[in-house]
Amino acid sequence: MSEAVRIEDVSKKFRLYHERNQTLKSAIMRRRRSVHEDFWALQDVSFSVPQGSTFGLIGSNGSGKSTLLKCLAKIYWPDKGSIAYDGRMAALLEVGSGFHHELSGRENIYLNGSILGMSKKEIDRKFDEIIDFSGVEKFIDQPVKNYSSGMYVRLGFSVAISVQPDILIVDEVLAVGDAEFQEKCFAKFRDYREQGRTVVLVSHSMGSVRAMCDQVAWLNKGHIMQVGETASTIAAYEKSLDLGR
């Protein structure tokens, strides 16, 4: 099976600032920009995601899952190592980011769609589908600031999902919306898999990871602990939690 994403020896360092001179005055007075120590959020992480699979990232808070996801989404740049993709990648880290409150739902679909890299033609083509999936057609010409938070999220999710990337990267965004909408999202992910698309997701809900993922990587304090089949990896992770207690 070919690889959709290959991550090789990725390390990401953050600076912990003891003193951060973000003003010119302090930079000049102290003759330096900052005093900091390095913190490695990810260290030598390597694994690859097979094409057409759904891949989960699990781990406790602060284990580096989100950092890794942001590296995958090209928001952070790894200090070491490389990430290679085979196909078009889209990331869904927060739904509705980039919505403009005063603009209508319709205008925001176009705005957000183009932020996510779709052309106008593409959005025109998928417009009905997007509205249909979001279930806000009645309010599509209202400014989004009048939307309920559920509607807001549903619209944002519908736009993002319509990008139809070869590789979709999802942060814990499934926790939004009501049960019915979540079921719709799961169905969408299943479609994705049938179409041979790859999904990489982060979740704290072991239930949904079990239900959706073919493979799982378990991260702890920036290191990969185990990569492999869902059931056994989750078991190992849960065992480690029990021991800690």
Binding site: E102, E107, L111, S114, I115, K120
Partner: peptide
């Protein structure tokens, strides 16, 4: 460039709304 156009429209349209 399409994103540029859309963000520009966001600025122009959003500014004097209402």
């Amino acid at each position: 460039r399409e994103l540029l156009v859309n963000l520009t429209l966001r600025e122009v349209k959003g500014k004097y709304r209402r």
